[in-house]
């Protein structure tokens, strides 16, 4: 079984939700909040000081607001990581494992930090990160997020997210010690409505009824 700490940092590797046209931070977050479900392909490269060459992974990403996220890796090793509120589910060829992150400060920071970006929750985003925003040409935007938590900063120095409109296109995580993880998103669809069966298949058990 994998360490809970290890599991939770899965969230650092997950991309943000896309956004629509965004002249400023508020508009970008509003676009992200209104984007609804997301489906995309991703390519991830991990540049680690331990390794002589980067590690690569490809697969599909799914997001269902407000707090469900799934990464289905296709190569080099098939596997799934699903986040459902305070629960992380990891499934691969060796089986499935569920981990509660409710009691871990680091884990909660990772999960909540990412969740607020994906659901466009600007207030919560500012509470957890120092946020730097810049707009680029053709409706593009960039966010630089620095964790306010000292504990989290021991692992992640900053996260850079860029996109166009309501679509996230790239996320780069700068880790303590100089490591770096870059995720690029293609074929991004927003406003996706998952059918119940599809939702169950992609994210596992449904969330509790409101």
């Amino acid at each position: 079984m994998r360490c809970i700490l290890v599991l939770l940092s899965a969230l650092l590797a997950a991309p943000a939700a896309p956004a629509d046209s965004a002249p400023d931070l508020e508009a970008v977050m509003a676009a992200l909040a209104g984007a609804g479900g997301v489906r995309a392909r991703y390519e991830e490269r991990k540049h680690l000081s331990l390794l002589t060459r980067p590690l690569e992974e490809e697969g599909r990403l799914y997001f269902a607001p407000p707090d469900r996220l799934a990464r289905h890796a296709e190569r080099p090793v098939p596997g799934r990581v699903m986040v459902r509120g305070d629960e992380v589910v990891i499934a691969d060829a060796t089986g499935e494992e569920r981990v509660s992150i409710a009691d871990s400060e680091i884990a909660r920071a990772f999960v909540e930090g990412l969740a607020v970006v994906l659901r466009g929750d600007l207030e919560a985003l500012r509470a957890r990160y120092e946020v730097a925003f810049s707009s680029t040409q053709e409706n593009g935007w960039k966010l630089r997020l620095v964790p306010r938590s000292r504990l989290l900063r021991r692992f992640v120095e900053a996260i850079a997210v860029s996109g166009r409109g309501a679509r996230v296109q790239r996320m780069e995580r700068f880790e303590a010690g100089g490591d770096r993880t870059v995720s690029e998103f293609h074929d991004v669809e927003v406003g996706v409505r998952f059918a119940p069966e599809e939702e169950r298949a992609l994210f596992g058990a449904p969330a509790p009824a409101p």
Binding site: R2, V6, S9, S49, P76, F155, E175, G177, D179
Partner: peptide, 24 residues
């Protein structure tokens, strides 16, 4: 494999002092 997985920031942090995975 662990570095390729979702927990890589933490694994990468501890691996230099624990390459054998004793803590895990």
């Amino acid at each position: 494999r662990r570095l390729a997985g979702p927990g890589s920031p933490l694994v990468a942090r501890s691996a230099p002092a624990d390459p054998l995975g004793l803590f895990e």
